[in-house]
């Protein structure tokens, strides 16, 4: 019994270390002064410093991290909230009246399985025509498409879990559909909305391909911005600064994920099993 417990901790430690190694290595690199990185690539930091973060967080002509972060935030908020707004009414119709069971639901859920690149090119052409290229709204809209499948699934599941009698009671209380939806169904879906939002936000923030293809300057999200940083420095990458950029870029979803990990596990199962 005791031995097993020790072994389990050991397995956990190894798994956590190996899987998180790149994050750890990046964090360590970000905390090293510029000279130290290539001289001492080990995980031991000789003279820890926040210098790299100071450089990253200062606006310069090479790098304005705030612009990237703002682009990511705006696009991710659109990409996380819009699916909830779009899916809620139709999810109710699906759960209670079977609307869209044959076509709409499978169609949306299957979007999850399609390679995103398929949408990227026609969208590029469409955005070019509509003037949505390199805009935060344009990026947010397509991120909303990416998040639709899971949002639809989670919200349908949540509505199905509400006892039908509650809605019937509201009807007996004289409420028509809009009021039932607003006062009874919507408040009871709040936990599902929160989960959907968290998933959606993380996914949207982390999205790269659309950012790469549909933005060039004004609306570049931080995932793409960080990769620019690697490429543009050519031979002499400033490893410490690059690492600090990545840490900053990875931090919001990381924090959200770590704080909300309980929510993520359970609903992933719900989302996957029905889909």
């Amino acid at each position: 019994m005791k031995l097993h417990s020790v072994l389990r901790w050991a397995v956990f430690a190894v798994a956590a270390f190996v899987m998180n190694f790149p994050i750890l290595a990046t964090l360590v690199t970000a905390l090293k002064p510029p000279g130290e990185v290539t001289r001492n690539p080990s995980l031991w930091i000789e003279s820890p410093t926040l210098e790299n973060f100071a450089i990253v967080l200062t606006v310069s002509d090479r790098l304005n991290i705030y612009a990237y972060l703002f682009n990511s935030l705006t696009a991710a908020l659109i990409g996380a909230i819009l699916p909830i707004l779009l899916c809620f009414p139709v999810a109710w119709a699906l759960a209670r009246r079977g609307t869209g069971r044959a076509v709409l639901f499978p169609l949306v859920v299957n979007l999850r399985a399609l390679p995103l690149i398929i949408f990227a090119i026609p969208l590029y052409i469409m955005y070019a025509t509509l003037g949505l290229l390199d805009t935060r709204v344009g990026l947010g809209l397509i991120l909303a498409v990416v998040n639709l499948p899971l949002a639809f699934l989670l919200i349908v599941n949540a509505i199905q879990a509400i006892p039908l009698e509650l809605e019937e009671a509201a009807r007996m209380d004289g409420a028509r559909l809009p009021r039932i939806l607003r006062r009874v169904v919507l408040p009871l879906c709040r936990p599902a909305f929160l989960t959907t939002f968290i998933f959606g936000f993380i996914t949207a923030w982390n999205e790269f391909l659309f950012g790469l293809m549909l933005t060039t300057q004004k609306a570049v999200p931080v995932t793409v911005g960080a990769s620019f940083f690697f490429a543009t420095s050519g031979g002499g990458v400033q490893w410490g600064v690059a690492a600090a950029v990545m840490i900053v870029a990875a931090l919001p979803p990381l924090v959200l994920g770590v704080v909300m990990y309980r929510r993520i596990g359970g609903s992933m199962l719900g989302g996957a099993v029905k889909g």
Binding site: P163, E165, L166, E168, A169, A170, R171, M172, D173, G174, A175, R176, R183, V184, P187, L188
Partner: peptide
């Protein structure tokens, strides 16, 4: 008529109280 226009009220077996 829909139930909301019938002017009745109902007590359900499960009570169906609004939990929120």
């Amino acid at each position: 008529l829909e139930s909301y226009d019938r002017g009745l009220s109902m007590v359900f077996q499960s009570y169906a109280l609004y939990p929120h």
